[in-house]
Computed example of a mutant assay.
Amino acid sequence: MAVVDHDYCFRYIHVGSYGHNADGSVLQRSSLFPVLKEEGFLVGDDAFPLKPYLLKTYSSNNLSCKQDTSTYRLSRARLIVENAFGVLPYRFRVFGKPIQVKVTATEIMVTPGTLDYEYIVRGCVKPGSWSADISELPSLLR
């Protein structure tokens, strides 16, 4: 499970649940869940249960103007998340298929310095080498 922001940056990643587990239960077992319940919200898809901290689109076809606008905007936000997951296997080919190694071995596979590193105490991020390798994503307005 991952959280992506408006700039296609992965802000939170939870690894350690199997693919057949329900998304809602994976979220509840993550370290993000207690913080999310108290001071935030996410945009989710139909795999997640509707909660005060989890925004979802309306599923009915007979919507009011406000509901239709809300559904449109939430769908646009979710599109960014879907695009971020689509870019991921192109940048890191290892994500194009299931990883056939133990979780501890995957740490060895990621080259040091490639990913961003967050200095939590100082409140800053050291960009990884990946950010110099990619060009700007095309505008959605074109």
Rank of each mutant, 00 (worst) to 15 (best):
Y119M: 01
D5E: 08
Y53C: 11
K97P: 02
Y18S: 14
E136D: 15
D45R: 05
E82A: 02
V35A: 15
S135T: 12
C9M: 11
I120R: 12
F48L: 11
P112C: 10
S70G: 00
R76M: 09
G123R: 09
I80A: 04
R122N: 13
G113R: 08
P127H: 11
K37T: 12
Y12H: 15
H6Y: 12
E107R: 02
N21W: 07
E39Y: 00
S60D: 14
L141V: 13
V125Q: 07
L27Y: 10
S31F: 03
E39M: 12
L27K: 02
I134A: 02
G86E: 06
V121P: 00
M109C: 10
G86Q: 02
V125D: 08
V103R: 13
L140Q: 13
K66R: 15
E118K: 14
P49R: 04
Q67K: 09
E107Y: 03
F85A: 01
D7G: 06
S25H: 13
V125S: 07
D45H: 03
G40L: 04
V4M: 12
R76L: 12
S59T: 15
L115C: 12
D133W: 02
N61E: 12
D133A: 14
P49L: 12
I134M: 06
T71C: 08
Y58L: 14
T111C: 11
P34L: 01
T71V: 07
V3T: 12
E107H: 05
V121K: 15
E82I: 03
V43H: 06
D45P: 06
V101D: 06
E82H: 00
G19L: 04
V94H: 00
E38N: 13
D68H: 11
S25G: 02
T106F: 14
I13H: 06
P52T: 08
A47M: 05
P34V: 00
K66G: 09
V35R: 13
V121L: 15
I80T: 15
G96P: 03
T71A: 11
T104F: 11
C9Y: 11
V125L: 10
I99G: 03
S31M: 00
L54W: 08
V94W: 01
P138D: 12
P34K: 02
R76V: 07
Y53P: 06
F48A: 05
N62Q: 13
E118P: 03
Y58G: 04
